[in-house]
Amino acid sequence: MVGIAEPAAAAAAEDPMLPRRGRVRARKRELDGVVTLEIVPEAEFSAASAGQFNMLGLPGIGEIPISLSSDPAQGDGLVHTVRAVGPVSAALSRLTPGDTVWLRGPFGVGWPLAELAGRDVVVVSGGLGLAPLRPVLHRLLAERTRYGQIVLLHGARSPTEILYRREIAAWRRRLDIDIAITLDHAGADWRGHVGVVTHLIPQAAFDPHHATALVCGPEVMMRFAIAALGAAGLAASAIFLSLERNMQCAIGLCGHCQFGPFFVCRDGPVFRYDKVAPWLSVKEI
């Protein structure tokens, strides 16, 4: 009939739902209930960019989207940090080196790395929101001279729940990145900040007219952080955020991740704030 359909064989050859085998090379316990897996795909796997995600699956259990946490320029391993909150993430958390995991990806739109050259970069993260920003920090620090000030403002729950703690300590020693970590709860032995991450923004050293902010964390935290960044002088078009929604197919066909007119899996997860601002303020959108 008249239409846009093509022969079946060609379409079947590129079945986007068929996962490919990967093997766990390393597993690291990060926090209580949080592990980082390094996975090596067995066959060639398209290079991802920072901010994109892969679908990690275990046959018979299911498949979930996990942000890429490794810098694609640093080797073949895909680094994914997983918090055990559901059946699939719990099963993924129990994988050990040598185990098989099934991959689809990479999917989505990542952070605007190309647009950051010559600018100050303010990374604002909360909790596990640091995971999708880790590859950005690696990339920025690997090509440090291409950027102006680099600031990392990170909020966590307590001293024992700071993700990538050792790595942050190593970054601190470089002296060419300003890092401030603030906690919701701390004892007297904590020498850093206590309070919300938004509180760090007015004190951070960056030029708001030449800075780009990358924000990732719980949505309420991102909304507050964006307000504080705006108050500090950043334009809405200079703020990027990574959204989270239910994602099942990762290719814009299952409909679950809709956020206003967007499919978060395909049009995001990273969005420029001014593009999503009207929907971000609508409850239960």
Binding site: M1, A5, A8
Partner: peptide, 18 residues
């Protein structure tokens, strides 16, 4: 199912012979 970057092969197959 067929107009975007990701195409559904099952839909495409059913549709092609329709």
């Amino acid at each position: 199912f067929l107009g975007g970057a990701a195409r559904d092969p099952h839909y495409a197959a059913r549709r092609a012979g329709l």
